[in-house]
Amino acid sequence: MSIILSIIYLIATVTFIVGLKKLGHPDTAKSGNLIAAGGMGLAIVGTIFVHDLEVPTLIYVLIGVAILVGSIIGGLIAVKVEMTKMPELVSLFNGFGGASAALIGIVEFGNADIKAASASIVSTILSAIIIGAITFSGSLIAWGKLNGSVKSVIKIPQYNIVNNLFIIAIVALGAYVVVGNIDSQILLYLLLVGGLVYGILFVLPIGGADMPVVISLLNSLTGIAAAITGVLYNNMVMLVGGILVGSAGIILTVAMCKAMNRTLASVIFGSFTASGSVEGVN
């Protein structure tokens, strides 16, 4: 990686920290958002143009088209949507970020020589896929709950136990692939589907009023997925940016719970007890 790109990433990382810090104060929030956005733009432009790879023009054109399409759609949605629908929009965009991380993982699983790859590389790829998939489907469900297309709370009997067993099964299957260096497309897609299903199982039982907290939590997870992908490419702006979102997101989630006089556990496991019971609180 060229030193110029490294410096660009360094600047972008600093803008993320400064931007996030400024976003926390009413007077500076707007400039904070712009600073972080500027840093992100810098990182994107730098990634595309500052490198020593031989890249065919076709690829540049495809990247350009992809960015144009995404910017137009994203910009239009963000400007057109009513103010009251902002939280669900955040959830939708967050889901897209998770999906992006999962897709990167899938491509890299295909590129990597899994049979010879070290355990850390394989586990990094698989974590990106699983966490990305969870945030994608989870965010879509949260989005659906907020806009009313996913109706009310759907209760599965003993869902906490079901969910926990499910995630343990996913992790165990992932560990099996990592330890055995198993280059299997079938297991890869099984893990992907497992992540998607878990995201749905995780968000479905949580009530609509608690959705902002869940979105914040999923957002934090997307940050972690981004950071994991950063490890894969040894890319510092992704690593630090992702971890910042991950840790800040968790703290924000807890703060949001506190503002609602709830604990995080009661939000996630709250509907565990029968309806009307307050045992989950505190």
Partner: peptide, 19 residues
């Protein structure tokens, strides 16, 4: 500022675009 901050952090997690 909880919601704007969540939204801002969400935009930052888009750094996955670099990957």
């Amino acid at each position: 500022l909880h919601t704007p901050l969540m939204s801002g952090a969400n935009a930052l997690s888009g750094v996955v675009i670099v990957g």
